[in-house]
């Protein structure tokens, strides 16, 4: 199986602080890759570089065989590289349906249309409603996002990303701060969509990573400790020491 995403020797410094040093990893088509590590390990920094929001100081990125280093965030999205955010990043003044439709319209290539925009709007609203029904949030479609509960906002953040029909979905702590049943519902939706979609999942909840991921990459202090199956990662001595140890402390 060929790699969908290849990260080659990527590094990033902020002044004296090396946030990411020489990270090399690959993500295979169709797999769910977990990205775990203690706070400050550089997980979000790596995400920001993969999605184009930060420029790496070193290394290269390939997506589906092509170099993407010089592409702006929007161009990477057009190729199917879609991310969510650690804190839900929504359009607070707009209705929930409109939040998702904003993504659906852009995916349909009609995000900037004006004349003939009514049809694009209708199609996007239908797509948004489909996702809302799937998430059990259709009764909130008209609510302003600012008025939603935190769990609903998290779900909205995911639905917005899904409306872009990603080929690779990068999720940054999607279950952080959620009640267990909310987290389960959210993970179930991710799983339902992961046919044809690869997922890269940042989480600090180790159980979720072990349960949901095909392979797990462990970052610590900006370096890749290991990248292997959950069972192998669990048994890895350096991981136990650096990561699980740090967590227990």
């Amino acid at each position: 199986m060929t790699a969908l995403l290849q990260v080659e020797g990527v590094g990033k410094r902020f002044g004296e602080f090396a946030a990411i040093s020489d990270v090399t990893l690959d993500l295979r088509g169709g797999e769910t890759l977990g990205l775990i590590g203690p706070n400050g390990a550089g997980k979000t920094t790596l995400f920001n570089m993969i999605t184009g929001f930060l420029k790496p100081d070193a290394g290269s990125l390939r997506f589906d065989g092509a170099a993407i280093d010089r592409l702006a965030p929007a161009q990477r999205v057009a190729r199917g590289l879609v991310r969510s955010f650690q804190k839900p990043m929504l359009f607070p003044a707009l209705a929930l349906r409109e939040n998702i439709a904003m993504a659906a319209r852009q995916h349909a290539g009609r995000g900037l249309s004006w004349w003939g925009g009514a049809r694009a709007t209708r199609a996007a609203n239908d797509e948004a409603d489909r996702l809302l029904i799937e998430a059990g949030l259709q009764h909130r479609a008209e609510a302003r996002v600012a008025d939603l509960a935190y769990g609903e906002q998290r779900m909205a953040d995911l639905l917005i990303a899904l409306a872009l029909r990603p080929r690779l979905l990068l999720l940054d702590e999607p279950t952080a701060g959620l009640a267990p049943d909310e987290a389960r519902r959210l993970l179930a939706i991710i799983r339902r969509h992961d046919e044809g979609t690869s997922v890269m999942l940042i989480t600090h909840e180790v159980e979720i990573a072990f349960a949901a991921c095909d392979r797990i990459a462990v970052l610590n202090l900006g370096r890749l400790l290991c990248l292997d199956t959950p069972a192998a990662v669990q048994a890895h001595p350096a991981v136990r020491e650096a990561y699980l140890g740090a967590l227990a402390a």
Binding site: F53, F85, M89, L90, F91, A93, Q106, H107, G111, I160
Partner: peptide, 11 residues
Amino acid sequence: EQPIRMQALGY
């Protein structure tokens, strides 16, 4: 409202 998210949506 959310320029960063707009970029993440491909705008």
